[in-house]
Amino acid sequence: MEEPLKIGVLAVQGNFREHVNVLGRLGARASEVRKPDQLDGLDGLVIPGGESTAIGKLVRAYDLEQAILAFKGAIFGTCAGMILLARGAVDATPDQPLLGLIDVVVRRNAYGRQVHSFETDLELVGETRPLRAVFIRAPWIESAGPAVEILAQHDGRPVLAREGRILVAAFHPELTDDTRVHELFCEVAREAASVRT
């Protein structure tokens, strides 16, 4: 039997508890991360949705910025987490940390305020069954580098993408019962772990 994956969920602000629950259901050992030393020994890290400015400030204030840059496992960012992992944001606030771990430029609150938030069916690359996706004041991917694989789009904008060990989603797979995106992340984390050992 395989060792369970050890996945941390950044828990400074936002929807972290739901990610811990989904990962637990998939058989991973999930833990909350609020300080740098809690990243030790993890195979993967989820950066959840929340308010990207609030998460950015808390990440910086508790030295998590350098720790996440030094982390070698897989990383999955949803919504605010996607913004944090991006190389650039067209409308970032001046002091917002952008870690540049995936070669995408994002647009924050791209669909507008909450009244325009929505849920919809997405087509996933290589899958026939649609994925119900919830977009909350969501960002989209404005442009992506050549090494970035686009896994789903909405109205011509990429909303799910992968570059190596980094996976990003503009929507919230933790808010529905469909676990396929988290399953994909667990695969990415296993691949990343096998490359390191």
């Binding site: 828990a11 400074v12 602000q13 936002g14 929807n15 972290f16 508890r17 739901e18 949705g49 929340g50 308010e51 609030a54 919504c79 605010a80 909450q114 009244v115 325009h116 938030s117 929505f118 849920e119 919809t120 919830v134 909350i136 004041r137 919230h172 808010l175 529905t176």
Partner: peptide, 19 residues
């Protein structure tokens, strides 16, 4: 696509948690 569903409405509150 649907706007204003309970999942979309409560979804924003989910993102505010811990804040």
């Amino acid at each position: 696509s649907e706007i204003g569903t309970m999942r979309v409405k409560s979804g924003l509150a989910e993102m505010l948690k811990g804040g």
